[in-house]
Design a protein around this nucleic acid. Structure first.
Lengths: 98, 98
DNA sequence: TAAATAGTTCAAAACTTGTTGAACTATTTA
DNA sequence: TAAATAGTTCAACAAGTTTTGAACTATTTA
């Protein structure tokens, strides 16, 4: 496996990124992660924004496949952070790259 | 009515903007409008990207209510342009404003 | 070893979004 | 005035998304 892989294997498209951001729950997750600025367990985020673990699992998976977060599993917990690179490439520079 | 109104009355939210951009047809429209860089009639865009007029009407309306395009009706035709301000505010600066 | 905790998966249900054609309005051209 | 053109609206349908609870795996703690 390549040394330069991201934790998301599989292609990231512009549509996947905008779809991932086009939901209130996922926007709250992203906001929470930006303000906390270090790794957090999914469960902690879920509690903070008050969603069920099933729903959390669904939303984190979607954010991950859009490349917006990276995840690291340590024992029982899954720690997530924002992947700024994807925001830069697909959001911040969207208009100019159009 | 206010002099500073945009052709979109009604509030623009972050979610509306991302939803509007999370669709392949609308992304093509936006791309077309960016490259052409002057007003174009909806019908011309529709022909260029090969969609029915009903579908075009639906997508232009959605882009308009998200504030991503502004429209001017002249006689039979509706001329549209990108509204760069909305891109700046809700897309380009999304991450830093988070 | 049993119970608790973190997260995933699954199928069903509820909801939202996009496409279609037909009927419509308004404007232009023959 | 009739036909053509540009666009809108509507209802029906198809397709896609989100939420839910129950059952599951894996790890930790008592």
């Amino acid at each position: 496996m390549d040394k330069n892989e991201e934790s998301t294997l599989g292609e990231i498209t512009q549509i996947m990124v905008f779809k991932a951001l086009a939901d209130p729950v996922r926007l709250q997750i992203v906001q929470y992660l930006k303000h906390i600025e270090h790794e957090v367990a999914c469960g902690e985020v879920g509690k903070a924004i008050n969603i069920s673990k099933t729903s959390g699992s669904y939303h984190f998976k979607l954010l991950q496949s859009a490349g917006l977060i990276t995840a690291r599993k340590e024992a029982r917990e899954k720690y997530v952070t924002l992947n700024k690179q994807t925001f830069d490439q697909f959001v911040t520079n969207f208009y100019e790259n159009l």
